[in-house]
Design a protein around this nucleic acid. Structure first.
Length: 115
DNA sequence: ATCCTGACTTGAC
DNA sequence: GGTCAAGCCAGGA
């Protein structure tokens, strides 16, 4: 079901989408931004993730990477390697901060949740 | 209000 | 194929 509510702010909508990412799958900041209709706010999605550690319920921020599957946000986790560990615990293979078979594991909100 | 920063993306070159 | 610069927008100083 689409998230068309305008009574919740942008950050909350980002978190809602991020929580729908299935275990073992990943998506990108830009994909979330486009799904929310603000295709040019990719950076803000990352900014929202930065604040996601203090929101409730929790957000699986480790399943969100940049468009080429690079773990650019790993240094913002409590431990630098936590992001990779979480992904690998879900079956995602990571090599040199790069997700292997990123295109296969990519979860597109537009496709999966509908436009 | 203005300037700066940044877990990004895209379009030139 | 790569690398670089510009655009983007929410928050903080």
């Amino acid at each position: 079901m689409p998230l068309n509510d305008t009574d919740i702010d942008f950050f909350q909508r980002v978190y809602e989408v991020a929580r729908r990412i299935p275990s073992g799958r990943v998506t990108s900041y830009g994909a979330i931004a486009r799904y929310l209709g603000t295709g040019r706010s990719a950076r803000v999605v990352g900014y929202a993730m930065n604040a996601s550690s203090s929101v409730h319920p929790p957000v699986p921020a480790h399943r969100v990477v940049n468009r080429i599957g690079l773990l650019t946000g790993k240094h913002h986790f409590p431990l630098p390697d936590l992001m990779q560990q979480l992904l690998e615990s879900e079956g995602v293979v990571v090599e040199n901060d790069q997700i292997v078979d990123f295109e296969k594991l990519f979860w597109d909100p537009m496709k999966e949740l509908g436009i």
